[in-house]
Amino acid sequence: MIDIHIHFRQIQLNKDEVSLATGANARSALLPEFLQRLAMKPSYSAFQTISVHESVIKAMITKYSEQVVYQPLHEIRHWFAYASGAFIEPGYPPLFYSRGKGKKVSPNKSAVAGIGEGVAGFVAQRLYKCRKLARPNHDYPDIVMVGGGKTFLVEAKSTISQGGTAIMATLEQEITRVVTYLNACSGLDKRPVEGLLVGTEIVSQDKYDVYLNEVNI
């Protein structure tokens, strides 16, 4: 079983803040001010924990991952076995070839991204009762979903836990991009559009921390 701990934050932006975000997306000098405004919004709160079988996450990764990734959950288990030091024990690869000068051993990036996309789709389905309309190829956002007369633009980010708050910093930076695109779609589309920015931090093989940002303009 995998425990998905969901932390939720709702971000409602006014016209000024949308302009600031749009500007910051093109001009980095505006970013600190936007981030300052963002810091004044409500922060994440623990929302819900969902325990789900690996097999369900596997199906969601097949459905939502942009890359063809083979057995991503096995990859992550393999990484955590390595990170736990187990590879020094008998029965594991002997390690003499993996690390060269200045080369850092890292988890499989495609597996991490695939899990992030699968979890984002899963969380959106379960919490918003929405359904996948499109999974754009090499495009933005990661998933387009619909439900309750609304369009949900879902963007996924993910990382392996390294004891910091890297995923939260990544999400903060990404919000300007979400807002910029949300603003464009609001002008083009008849239906209301909402942004879901979903960050997954893979804490261990059976625990994910999910930071869900619901963005409205």
Partner: peptide, 24 residues
């Protein structure tokens, strides 16, 4: 809501919104 997780004799079946049912 979808995806529903159905367990039968330790086998896990995932029922999704497109009507598919998957078992690993």
């Amino acid at each position: 809501w979808f995806p529903f997780e159905v367990s039968i004799d330790e086998l896990i079946f995932t029922i999704d919104d497109d009507g598919t049912i998957f078992v690993s």
